[in-house]
Design a binder for these strands. Structure first.
Lengths: 191, 191
DNA sequence: GGTGAAGTTCAAGAGGTCTTGAACTATATG
DNA sequence: CATATAGTTCAAGACCTCTTGAACTTCACC
């Protein structure tokens, strides 16, 4: 949630090496912003958006040029996206280089990754609260009212858990309804 | 989502000037981590947690000492928390200094602020997508398949919107059910 | 109104994350 | 097998947010 005050015009024109049509540039930036909102890297969103909008596989070199990124950055971003199953690496006929194509909706990736993160994160927090409760009760000299507050505080983690699950359910419903045809291919491919 | 690999022991002992009982330190850090997960500052969570757990109003100086923060930082953090309505500033009898107390659940703040952020943010993204769609159609030379992909992409913002609303609803339900008694006082006070 | 303590502000700096680019590895082709 | 091109890795540094601390303002009390 850093950048929601950027000027749309600037974002659209400054960004690339220059070859992107304006409408494409705007869309690519918009996806970058949404994806950053969800705690991913802006450039992961931009790369996916470019591949998805082009409706054909591009080489790493083309992505570099279109988005003004370095070779190293593109390599790492593509790996992330591939690991999450939202782009596909294809060997094109005459070419030596791999090409990369996007077929799947990004929300799949968002909900998948958020679910993993959330699981590890909240498990840890819960342990911490349990430990704190154990110690506080053992101490003996802690006022009852404060112990109660500690108990209530521990529900913070549980509330967060429930809220995240509610979000994930919504996200998956939406994606499932709208993109079911596209998803099958990738669901089969994954793992 | 940076820090879910910190060692609980370290977090509990290193942090403060040293006066915090261990159970309190652990709980304070845990709240700091949850709040950071939601895109707030870790120290906002730590300050709120300390005040809430103490069950009495503390002065800025005490907070500084207990959490090992600077005067300036405490001043700004308290202002944020007060603006969000999760702490209260009270003038104590004999003392010259203000004291600060926490009565409300933090999830209230999380859902309130997220709602504001989300509204501004997604309105902007939607505009961007509209603009991109307008330009792409005007261009004329864009393949139909690509225009369709752009349309689908625009639903990203709408899906995000719906998912965030689902979360906010859940969060508010939880808080409402569990802390209704505490909430009234502050609801009346706000604005 | 003067005094001292509390509170606020903000430029400079600390602390993190993300990107770069050069060295390195893998792969296709003649 | 040699060569060229693609792809990967990671230390150095760019970038950006958060904290600090000193100067400044406000406030209560005498």
């Amino acid at each position: 949630m850093k950048g929601y005050l950027w000027p749309a015009e600037a974002a659209a024109t400054e960004t690339a090496g220059g070859t992107l049509p304006r409408w494409e540039a705007i869309a690519v930036e918009a996806v970058g912003n949404v994806i950053e909102f969800w705690g991913f890297k802006r450039n992961q969103g931009r790369v996916w958006a470019l591949l998805y909008l082009r409706d054909q596989a591009l080489s790493a070199g083309e992505i570099e040029r279109e988005l003004g990124l370095s070779k190293g950055a593109v390599s790492m971003l593509l790996r992330d996206l591939e690991r999450w199953g939202v782009i596909e690496r294809v060997r094109s006929p005459g070419e030596a280089a791999w090409h990369y194509g996007a077929e799947t909706d990004l929300m799949k990736m968002v909900s998948l990754v958020l679910e993993q993160r959330e699981a590890a994160f909240l498990a840890r927090i819960r342990e911490d609260f349990s430990e704190a409760q154990r110690l506080a009760h053992a101490a003996g000299d802690v006022a009852k009212a404060r112990l109660e507050r500690l108990d209530r505080m521990a529900t913070l983690a549980e509330q967060t858990d429930r809220a995240v699950r509610a979000f994930l359910k919504t996200a998956r419903l939406d994606v499932g309804g709208m993109f079911s045809a596209l998803r099958e291919r990738v669901a089969a491919r994954r793992s």
